[in-house]
Design a protein around this nucleic acid. Structure first.
Length: 155
DNA sequence: TCCCGCTCTGAGT
DNA sequence: ACTCAGAGCGGGA
């Protein structure tokens, strides 16, 4: 079966997704939308409804390269929480700048939640628009997009 | 090999 | 409190 492509809306942006089954090849933010299907969990997430993006896999986490290990570490960060570039670097055994570079080239944002990685002082960067990162973090903090953790009933 | 990046720390003011 | 240089790791040209 062929790889599917489609987009959904997140605020002023369109989220383009290339995917097949539970494997996501590419996610990018664009001005224009494209017709086609988007994985259910990403649809729910972008709509601000409860969703669990950890049910999806990303091609970015495959392999034993440093970047792949960085992406796997970032996937461990729970919805609604953040870590710093330096903390991720420490977990993986690399340098903070390498983490920044990996985030900048992340082929599948959202699935690999690079928006949850912030600078020790300040929010850090995000392309194509820092406002997306701010909006994602605000959404995860305020609304209940995050699925309740196993064993965690209420807060 | 050289250059750049979504960094961090320490020294200097 | 602010600025700046240098360390530092990977990837791409």
């Amino acid at each position: 079966m062929a790889i599917l492509s489609g987009s959904c809306r997140f605020g002023l942006w369109n989220v383009h997704v290339s995917w097949q089954d539970d494997l996501v090849y590419r996610v990018r933010f664009a001005r224009e939308g494209i017709p086609g299907p988007v994985p259910e969990e990403i649809l729910r997430y972008c709509a601000g409804r409860p969703s669990d993006l950890s049910t999806l896999r990303s091609v970015a986490t495959e392999g034993e390269t440093t970047f792949a290990r960085i992406y796997r570490a970032v996937r461990e960060v729970p919805c609604g929480e953040t870590v710093t570039y330096g903390e991720v670097a420490w977990m993986v055994g690399t340098a903070p700048r390498a983490v920044g570079a990996a985030m900048a080239r992340n082929p599948t944002p959202l699935v690999v939640p690079c928006h949850r990685v912030v600078a020790k002082t300040g929010i850090g960067g995000f392309s194509p628009d820092l406002a997306i990162k701010e909006a994602l973090l605000a959404m995860e903090r305020q609304r209940d997009v995050c699925m309740p953790e196993k064993g965690e009933v209420n807060r």
